[in-house]
């Protein structure tokens, strides 16, 4: 156990995945309540196009990811109809347009830079070796997002549960929705950069869906969701560490363990609620 904790890659993974899990766990509660799971996934995919963009325009990858995330939110705001029913198709069309744009950017990268190097979107995690300055930035940004989310949590919850009531209470629904989407874009971008795009989606939805099945109040659901996300991440890292040598010369990816644990929690929560 001591050996496990002393390993540098493990420490970095524990820290980064904790930041991603806590932020995604809190954001995920509202995402699931508002039915914006697809929007969250689409934003993660669109922002990872920032990798190609940053290379083409010569800006830092972090800035590229964030700019594309914000552009994705703007696109969603334009495409998204007011009624909640059409959100699903709007997110899908944004995703198609975003991936098409990425294809074009990469086409330019490859033809204009020739063989000078291309940035890859990180599909699976790089959580075991992220440079310490990125780790610091990610934790600071995650903390900032959580603070803003805590500030708007009350009206946002009301708006997510009952739009009419919120409107009567004087909540500015459109502005609030936009702030939430921006936070969502920031959160999934951060998660996609540190733990990979797949885990960003899984951490956003899995813990929140399980938390909502178990907890009674919204605060309890949020805390439970963050705790479950953290437990899945850290459990997955332990399993990835333990699995070394199960099959000599082959590694078991940590993404697989984390997703499997999240699904297990989700299924267990369903059984418990029924019992």
């Amino acid at each position: 156990m001591l050996e496990f904790l002393q390993s540098g890659p493990v420490q970095s993974a524990l820290l980064l995945s904790a930041a991603a899990a806590l932020l995604c766990g809190a954001l995920g509660l509202f995402t699931v309540l508002r039915g914006q799971a697809f929007a969250g996934h689409a934003l993660a995919d669109v922002s990872s196009a920032g990798g190609a963009g940053s290379l083409l325009f010569g800006i830092s990858p972090l800035l590229g990811f964030l700019l594309f995330g914000v552009a994705g939110v703007a696109g969603l705001e334009i495409l998204q109809p007011r009624r909640a029913a059409g959100r699903d198709e709007a997110a899908g069309i944004l995703l198609g347009a975003g991936l098409g744009g990425t294809a074009l950017l990469l086409h330019f990268c490859v033809t204009t830079h020739g063989a000078a190097g291309t940035a890859q979107a990180v599909m699976f995690g790089a959580m075991f070796s992220t440079p310490s300055d990125t780790a610091l930035w990610s934790c600071l940004l995650a903390g900032g997002c959580l603070a803003v989310l805590a500030l708007i949590a009350r009206p946002l919850l009301l708006a997510s549960l009952d739009e009419e009531l919120a409107r009567v209470a004087g909540v500015r629904l459109r502005a609030l929705g936009l702030v939430f989407l921006l936070l969502l874009a920031l959160g999934v971008t951060l998660a996609a950069m540190t733990v990979g795009a797949i885990l960003a989606t899984a951490l956003l939805i899995g813990p929140a869906a399980a938390g909502l099945r178990l907890a009674r109040g919204p605060l309890a659901a949020a805390l439970l969701s963050m705790a479950l996300g953290l437990a899945a991440c850290w459990g997955g890292i332990v399993l990835a560490y333990e699995s070394y040598g199960w099959i000599p010369g082959r590694t078991w990816p940590v993404s697989f363990f984390i997703v499997a644990l999240l699904l297990l929690f989700y299924a267990a929560a369903g059984l418990r609620r029924r019992a």
Binding site: G35, M123, T201, A209, P253, F256
Partner: peptide, 23 residues
């Protein structure tokens, strides 16, 4: 919830793909 179930299925599919590739 439908979109939550779909998101989890998506993550599962890709994670299983990653596992098979790694192995």
């Amino acid at each position: 919830r439908r979109d939550a179930a779909t998101a989890l299925l998506l993550a599962l599919l890709l994670a299983v793909g990653a596992l098979c590739l790694s192995l």
